[in-house]
């Protein structure tokens, strides 16, 4: 009926969301190349049945492919987890559960980032 509110509390801004949005697009464009080339190499020029330990080992002989894979890993992980963060914002309304969601995303970023990096950096063919 009556309203004398002058609007909601004004959210204080930082540029975080702007950078996040921008990063989303930049990483997206990079991933278009990285992921599509990756998929092509693995599934078009080779098939899933060609891939085994030796295949991976041969590929990682080259520092280029190691760099390529690492970049793909980091971009895919940050792009994907940023997406997950936005999904949490969109679908989780209670402040408590949001903290849980954000924490899970941060932990996933750490664990998978470290695991993937370790795998790529420390790999030595046997």
């Amino acid at each position: 009926m009556s309203s004398n509110r002058v609007g909601r509390e004004k959210p204080v801004g930082s540029n975080f969301e702007l950078y996040s949005w921008y990063f989303f697009r930049i990483s997206g464009i990079m991933l278009v190349f990285l992921a599509v080339i990756h998929v092509m190499v693995m599934h078009v020029f080779n098939t899933a049945f060609d891939i085994d330990y030796d295949f991976v080992a041969a590929r990682w002989e080259s520092p280029f492919w190691r760099m390529f894979d690492w970049l793909l890993l980091i971009m895919a992980l940050t792009h994907g987890l940023n997406g997950a963060r936005i999904a949490v914002d969109d679908y989780v309304q209670s402040a408590g559960w949001r903290v849980v969601g954000y924490s899970a995303i941060l932990i996933a970023l750490l664990i998978f980032g470290v695991m993937g990096t370790l795998a790529i950096v420390t790999f030595e063919p046997q």
Binding site: L77, F112, F123
Partner: peptide, 27 residues
């Protein structure tokens, strides 16, 4: 599709991590 690919990515990181433990396990 984004969330689906992200879930697969987790799986993929795990399996590639296992490459470090040698060919037997990985193959």
């Amino acid at each position: 599709t984004g969330l689906g690919v992200l879930l697969f990515l987790f799986l993929h990181i795990i399996d590639i991590f296992l490459v470090g433990y040698g060919p037997e396990l990985f193959d």
